[in-house]
Design a protein around this nucleic acid. Sequence first.
DNA 1: CATCCTTACTTAACCGTTTCAGTACCTCTG
DNA 2: CAGAGGTACTGAAACGGTTAAGTAAGGATG
Lengths: 358, 358
Amino acid sequence: MRRVSIKDVAREAGVSTTTVSYVLNEITTQTISSETSRRVREVAKRMGYVPNLNARSLTSRKTNLIGIVIPQTEPGREFMFDNPFYGALLSSLEFNARRNGYHLLLTGPASGQSYIGVARNRGVDGIVIVGSYPSSSLDELHQLSIPVVLIDTYVTDESFHTIGINDRQGGLLATEYLLSRGHRGIAFVSGGISEHGVMRQRFLGYQEALEAAGLQVREERLYTGEVSFQHGMQAARELCSQQDITAVFAAADILGVGVVKGLRQQGRRVPEDVSVMGFDDLDLAQICDPSLTTMRQDIAAKGRQAILTILDALDGKPDKQEWIFPVDLVVRDSVRSVGRPVTAQKHRRPDSGEELNE
Amino acid sequence: MRRVSIKDVAREAGVSTTTVSYVLNEITTQTISSETSRRVREVAKRMGYVPNLNARSLTSRKTNLIGIVIPQTEPGREFMFDNPFYGALLSSLEFNARRNGYHLLLTGPASGQSYIGVARNRGVDGIVIVGSYPSSSLDELHQLSIPVVLIDTYVTDESFHTIGINDRQGGLLATEYLLSRGHRGIAFVSGGISEHGVMRQRFLGYQEALEAAGLQVREERLYTGEVSFQHGMQAARELCSQQDITAVFAAADILGVGVVKGLRQQGRRVPEDVSVMGFDDLDLAQICDPSLTTMRQDIAAKGRQAILTILDALDGKPDKQEWIFPVDLVVRDSVRSVGRPVTAQKHRRPDSGEELNE
DNA sequence: CATCCTTACTTAACCGTTTCAGTACCTCTG
DNA sequence: CAGAGGTACTGAAACGGTTAAGTAAGGATG
C-alpha cells in the first residue's frame, strides 16, 4: 500500500500533475479556475495526500533540514551528552528551527568517518556544530557550500559564523569574585584544555585574574579532564590533600556539583571549609545544595541565534556573523569570604569584597 | 557550483551512470571489469562525489531516518525538554540509531498541526514517540504504514510497539519502602495524571501500597502539575502546612530534587523532618544533597530497545513487541525511619523495615 | 475577420539515483 | 558454424515532485 502521490491525485481529479502542483503550492503566477482548484484540494484531502519533501528537495535543492552535531562525552561512550547543558541547547535549537519551518537532523560525530558525512549525504541546508573539534575536521566543512555555525569554539576562520560567550571574561570575573572574597588558594577544575575550546579561554581568565592579584597559576591546582559529574568528584577528592586550597573554580556547573559532592564525601563543608564556583547556571546550580554561585550564560539565546544566523545566511546575507553573549555573576550559597581581611595586596583594599562585577 | 552527481562522474569516467552506480554500490549481481571499476572509483574520489541520499530514498523508498517526537514541557514554552531524562534518552536513541546506519529527525509536537506531519512529509522509516499524547493524535499514526514505537505510554493498541517500565510496581515499591520505614503520612507529587501516562500508573502503585497497609489515599496529599523542578518546589511549599506528612513520594527525580529544595526553603530538614523518595535515578539523584533515594530505571536500555524494535520491524518481523523493563529501589540518603516502630498494623511486623524489595 | 490577449490548462524536461531489460561481443560446445 | 553461455556494459523507465514552455479555446480589438 503505497502512499498517495501527486499522480494519484491528478488521475483522480482528472487533471495533470502540474495542475495539482500549482493548486497545492498556491502558485500565483499561474491562473487556475476556482472550480478546478476546489476539486483538486478536495481530492487531495480525501485521499490523504501529503507531499514528499525528499522528492521536492530534489528539484528545489533545499531540504529544510539543519544538521546538528553534538559531541560525545568521550569517544566510544554510549552517551552523546551527559551534560544537561546540551539538552538545554538542543531544546532551543529545535524550538527555533521548527517555528521557522525547519527540522533538525541530529548526529554525533560519526565514529571512523568524517562527522560531516551526514550533512553532505542528506544535503542539509545548514549545519550547527557544538563544541570544538580538531581543526582537520573543520577543513572538511569548507567543501560544503552551506552556512556553518560554530557554537562554543574559537576559530579565526572567516567562512564560519560563530556564536559564543565571553569565556575568558567569565573566567576572569569568576576568579576575581573569589579573590574579592579573600581566597588565595584557588583550584581550577575543567574539561580538557584544547586549543580552540572554551575551557582554555576560561582558564586564561582565571590566570589573568590571579596574575592581576599578584598570584601565579600553580600546576598542582589544575584539574583537567572530561566535563562530567564524575570528574568533578574525582578532582575534589584529589584536591583535599592540599590544605591551602580554600576555593575551587569549576569551569562548568556539572563539574561544580561534582566538586561539591566530592568535597562532602571527604568531610569538607561547602562553603564553610571550601568555596565552589560554577559556570553556566544550569538548573542544576539551583538544584544542588548549597546552591551554586556561578557565571550565568543564556543558553536559549545561543540556540536561537544559531538558527537565525543560518536563516540569514540562507536568505543571502553574506556577512559573517559573530555573536558573543554576555556572562553574569550569579551569587548563591557556595562561596563565602575567608575570615581575615586581605591586607597584603597592593591592588586591593580590604573592603573590596562588595565591588561585584555586574 | 553544484555538487557533483553520478552523471558528472559517469561523463568523466567515460561510462554510463548505471555503471557508476553498480561500481559504487558494489552490486555483485553485475560483473564489472576491475579496470573500469578502479577507474570509476578513482574519478569519484577525485571529484569528491557523495551520493545524494534524498534522491536515493526516492527509488529505494527508504530514508534511513527515524523520527523522534519528544514532548514539550508545556505547550508554548520555549523548551522542549527541561527534564534531563529526555536528554539521556535522546543520547541513547542517537547512539543506537547511528551505529545501525540511521539518523534521527528530531521534532517536538508541531504547534497547531499534527505532530506526525514531519514523519509523513519526510518519509521517515520509523517513528519513536516519547511520552503520552491525546489518543486522537495516536489515531493519525495508523495512517502511516511505518513501525511506531511508543515509549512511556499506556495504550492497548495492537499496532504499536511499546517500551516502558513497570511504573505501577515502581510506585508500589517506592511507597512500600516508605511505609516499611514507618511513614504513614505520605504525600504524592507528580506530573499530570492523564489516562495513558506513566504518572497515573505510579499513582496506582502508590494507592495500592497505601491500601494494602490499611491506609487511604487522601486528596489533600496529592500534588499534580508539570514535571519540573519548579513544580516540585511549589508542592513542597504547600505541603509544609500539613504537619502529619512525614514523607513525600515524588514520581520523578526532577520533582524530587525540587521537593527537597522547597522543603529546605521552608526550614524543614531532609530526611530528619521529612523524607523524600524520587523516581528515575538520573544523575541528579546523586548530585543533590542529600542524595536521593529513588526507583532506578534503565534509560539507556529503553533507547536501545526502541531502535532495535524499529529495526526488527523494518526487517519484516511482524510481531508486536512490548518491552517492560524492571525498576529497582536505590537506597540513598533522603529517607529515614520515623522514630516509633510500627505496631498497629496487621500485616506488618515491627522489624519489617529491612525486607527491602530487590 | 485576422490578430492579439487572457484564461486555463498540459507536455515534457529535469532533479539524482536505482534497476530491469536489453545488447554487443567473445568464447566455448557439440 | 549455429547456438549457448558468459562477460561487460548501456538505455530507459521509474521514484515524486517542480517548472519552463507550449497550446487550445474564447473574447476583445482594430
